[in-house]
């Protein structure tokens, strides 16, 4: 079986396995899987409103997935997307609230603030990895919590109106919202961010596949020593990849800050977008196109899940279980590949 076909089949099989195990769990706990999956489908694509919500949901997912995938391609594991996402969210809202500017300047400025904030937050683990050889996984995990507590503190003490738990609404001139898109989808929260997300897919593909810099980054990902021997600056590429990854993550935060919500609120825990980004990147085999499709899948699952308790009486956490299982199966793809290889060989004989 060709490598390419195996590469496409593995994620598909993982998704199917996840759904099968999800079905088994429902059967054991006495729910009707057919009703549940029907409700899931209706909740994601049944009405034009839901479609709008699905698109809104997968907009930050695409960017979070790209963030994880980009670092992965350079051989780094950025678990800190969640933290960079929160920081970007806050930065975009801060600029959105603090300034009064014409839209042409204000909106790009707010978006840029999110990108820079995310990039700076990711620069820390990148720098520590390059300079002190500290493993980025631990540093990014720790920075997630630092981001959570620090942003909460800033919202509570600097930005919140009268000891409240959230900031004021951003000014209209910094908003990504669009009456037209909303009316098109029966007043969902759909906003212009989707255009940015799709553009970023293209940017990632172009940067990695078509530029010299991208070649270097991938070379470092394949083999640091070989890249070093070929005269590439490994440390600089490590830092650069984290910074770009963080920029994607920060932009994802702007999607929520400037598009979906228009404010930032004190958070009791993580939003989960960053962690879902890991799942999305893995399922999309860390390519721009793969991330795009798997983000659509996860967005549909997440939004559709909300309909499951209403229509079928099944807790929406079932979808979280399925997502976790998909991650397990993709991660364990060694065993799926071994299985596919065996089938392939039998076919040849």
């Amino acid at each position: 079986m060709s490598k390419r076909l195996t590469g496409i089949l593995t994620p598909i099989i993982s998704v199917l396995l996840g759904i099968i195990v999800g079905t088994i769990i429902m059967l054991i706990s006495g729910y009707d899987p057919v009703a549940a999956y029907t409700a899931l489908w209706n909740g994601a694509f049944g009405e034009v409103y839901y479609v709008g919500e699905v698109i809104r949901q997968f907009t930050p997912y695409i960017l979070a997935g790209l963030a994880v995938a980009f670092a992965f391609r350079v051989g780094l594991f950025n678990i800190g997307v969640e933290g960079q996402f929160i920081v970007g969210w806050l930065a975009s809202v801060w600029v959105g609230v603090a300034f009064d500017l014409p839209k042409v300047i204000h909106l790009p400025l707010a978006i840029l603030a999110a990108i820079v904030a995310g990039a700076l937050w990711a620069f820390i683990p990148g720098f520590l990895k390059a300079r002190f050889r500290v493993h980025e996984v631990i540093v990014t995990i720790m920075l997630n919590y630092v981001a959570l507590h620090v942003t909460n503190y800033i919202i509570r003490n600097v930005l919140a109106a009268k000891s409240g738990d959230k900031t004021e609404m951003i000014h209209e001139s910094a908003s990504l919202r669009s009456e037209w898109l909303q009316s098109l989808t029966d007043y969902s929260r759909l906003h212009w961010g989707i255009i940015l997300a799709i553009a970023c897919c293209f940017i990632m593909w172009f940067l990695l596949e078509k530029t010299t810099r991208g070649f270097e980054l991938r070379a470092v990902g394949f083999n640091q020593h070989a890249a070093h021997y070929a005269g590439m600056n490994v440390n600089r590429n490590i830092i650069l990849s984290m910074v770009i990854s963080g920029a994607f993550a920060g932009l994802a935060g702007a999607m929520e800050g400037l598009g979906t919500f228009g404010y930032a609120a004190v958070k009791g825990g993580f939003t989960g977008v960053g962690f879902d980004g890991i799942a999305i990147a893995l399922l999309g085999s860390n390519t721009a196109l793969g991330v795009f499709f798997s983000a659509i899948l996860f967005g549909a699952l997440k939004v559709g899940a909300l309909n499951m308790p209403l229509e079928a009486g099944v807790p929406n956490e079932l979808v979280d279980i399925i997502i976790a299982l998909i991650v397990f199966f993709v991660a364990s793809s060694y065993i799926i590949r071994a299985f596919l290889d065996r089938i392939g060989k039998k076919g040849v004989k």
Partner: peptide
């Protein structure tokens, strides 16, 4: 160990699964 998954990824899946399963 047996399926040779990336340890970190598998750990992330454990976290996602634990919360999903228990809340379910």
């Amino acid at each position: 160990i047996t399926f040779r998954a990336d340890h970190t990824v598998s750990g992330v899946a454990i976290n996602l699964l634990a919360v999903g399963l228990t809340m379910f």
